[in-house]
Amino acid sequence: MDEILKIEHLNKKFDDLTVLEDISLEVKKGEVVVVVGPSGCGKSTFLRCINGLETIQDGKILLDGETVNPPLGNIKNYREKIGMVFQSYDLFPHKTIIENLMLAPLKVQKRNKVEVRKEAEELLEKVGLSSKKDNYPRQLSGGQKQRVAIVRALIMHPEVLLFDEVTAALDPEMVREVLDVIMELARQNRTMLIVTHEMAFAKAVADRVIFMDGGVIVEDTDPKSFFENPATERAKKFLSTFEYNE
């Protein structure tokens, strides 16, 4: 299979603080890459570099062989192809659910209104939120809002999807409904990079696990070996924090 996303020797600094150091990664089409690691290890920043929300100090990010970051002036065109869902609910509060979904396809991609509305309704149906299409985001639960946020990314027909701890701000009973949607996307062979703290989910959804610590990639392996037999001490220590033994 071909590489769709390629990250070459990425370096990211906030002033003098190095956040990411010499990160290189190739993601194949249809691959689900889960990124795990302790808080502050740079995994969210890594995702934000991929669609150019963060500037980078060194290295290159390529989508389909073309440079996304550092930006060459046409980064907007690539952003449409890289969907992103954030941790906090980021729907537009002044627009209804269906308007939230339609805004970017209409304004950014200049697509046909009838066609976009039809697609928005179909996608809402798939995530079980048809009845909410004329509601405002404030009338939805956290889990419902995140499902809408995922649909809002999908309707742009992205080639790559980035999930930045999308369940971290949710009440526990709502985590499942959001993870189910992402799992379904994995079954559809979507290319995804997922940052998460849900280890059971990571194990189930991942084709490949990246373990980051201190701004570097420590392990890059398949989920089975990572979770059952981690190669490094750091990974063992990290995984042990999720167990609760007397």
Partner: peptide, 23 residues
């Protein structure tokens, strides 16, 4: 206006002007 409103608009491909006008 939370920063995430600017960021999610940017991530959807809106230009700066579009972000201001629509969001």
């Amino acid at each position: 206006i939370p920063k995430i409103q600017y960021e999610s608009s940017t991530a959807l491909g809106f230009t700066r002007l579009q972000t201001y006008v629509h969001v």
